[in-house]
Amino acid sequence: MSKVLTIRDLPREERFAPGHRMCQGCGAAILMRHITKAIPKDAIIVHATGCVEVTTTLYPETSWMHPWLHIAFENAAAGASGIEAALKVLKRKGQLPAEKEIKVVAIGGDGGTFDIGIQALSGMLEREHDILYVVYDNEAYMNTGIQRSGATPQWAWTTTTPVGRVWRGEWRPKKDIIGIALAHKVPYVATVNPAYLPDLYMKINKAMSIKGPKLIHAFSPCVPGWRYEPSITITLCKLAVQTGLWVNYEIENGVLNVTTPVPKRKPVREYLKLQGRFRHLTEEEVNAIQKYVDEQVAHINKLVGKEVIGPVET
């Protein structure tokens, strides 16, 4: 694995075919293009039901140049477990060439991972399968029309947490999927973001070199669900990191490393104001989110042992 420093160092070969039906500006489309570059050619992908699955495999067309399997919504981790076990035994029994190394990658959205797929994911992590699981998190059930999931952030409007006289959008904080994975003592977890592709590439590459279950949590803006202009996807991705709302990091064998340090943070308002799903927020509500992010940042700095994410620029 050569060290990738800039976006120009990423592989040129495309393994995610264009012509799919994902939205303009879709964060997940950028993720899939680069995940498929970062994983080896000899890899099998298992996909949970979701936006990406339905928009990339409309028969008789497919965007996938890797062997690819979709079974159902809640079982990508279980299907991947079966494939990994099969490859192991078929090699051992000489039904597959012993020298051929085939990797297994599972991909699911936040609904298929945080919610309905959490049990299968837990099983996969606990049984120590050699699988990389990537969750692309667009923070709601976007494929079916923006219903809240366990990954929806507090205050966000969705069609099932609408803003009315009584409700102010989602009222519970986002589920801590990385914490859940870490509770399984997995060797590697990381967060990635479409605006930081060399970082994404390096992390996926590293994950593939580590034996055992790995979880990568990917930030995945959704144009129709978050209600923003398709042209600003990358701006939003960057703002999420620059405000400290999203932190790019990895935890390898328990050691935390923040891969995108932010010396000076921008106020969360900068990120929130570009999205229709937060349009209803009052000054107090924005301040509440700022306070929540400040606490998260303090927690991360404490874990790292130094200030990797700085204070809000005033």
Partner: peptide, 16 residues
């Protein structure tokens, strides 16, 4: 961890 996953993993393994 469940019968749902039992058959899901079986599907994956057979597909492999």
């Amino acid at each position: 961890e469940s019968e749902h996953s039992a058959l899901s993993a079986a599907v994956g393994a057979a597909a492999a």
